[in-house]
Design a protein around this nucleic acid. Structure first.
Length: 109
DNA sequence: GCGCTGACGCGAT
DNA sequence: CATCGCGCCAGCG
């Protein structure tokens, strides 16, 4: 497990319940711009069951797994369970970097 | 080293 | 909107 992986995993852990982030966005937060594919690899390899990997989707709001695959179904199930609305494998509202920034950096009310 | 592949992203069509 | 093409990067044979 190298340092890059740890930063990526930390960024994924930071995604609030009910929110989602794009692979590229996670990479950016991990200090690894243009490494979206690396994020995908790390998630695929990761064994931590506590990791909210299902909150990571593609930049256009679509689930990365091929529709019908077990991974797709599992991610869809978990997102739905968190109240995230998914239709035809796509989020009703695509992941917004600014919204996520606000959610993560906003001071507690 | 080389080419292929993929849980990616983005602009063009 | 849906697709395509091309760039990108790490693993693997």
């Amino acid at each position: 497990m190298d340092d890059d992986s740890n930063r990526i995993l930390a960024a994924v852990h930071a995604i609030p319940r009910g929110e989602v982030a794009a692979y590229g966005e996670i990479a950016r937060r991990a200090g690894l711009p243009r490494r979206a594919r690396l994020v995908a690899r790390v998630l695929a390899q990761n064994s931590d069951s506590a990791l909210p990997w299902h909150r990571v989707v593609r930049a256009d709001g679509r689930i990365a797994f091929p529709p019908g695959s077990t991974g797709f179904d599992e991610q869809l199930r978990r997102l739905t369970e968190e109240g995230v609305v998914v239709r035809d494998g796509r989020l009703t509202r695509p992941p917004c970097a600014e919204d996520l920034d606000a959610a993560l950096w906003a001071p507690p009310p």
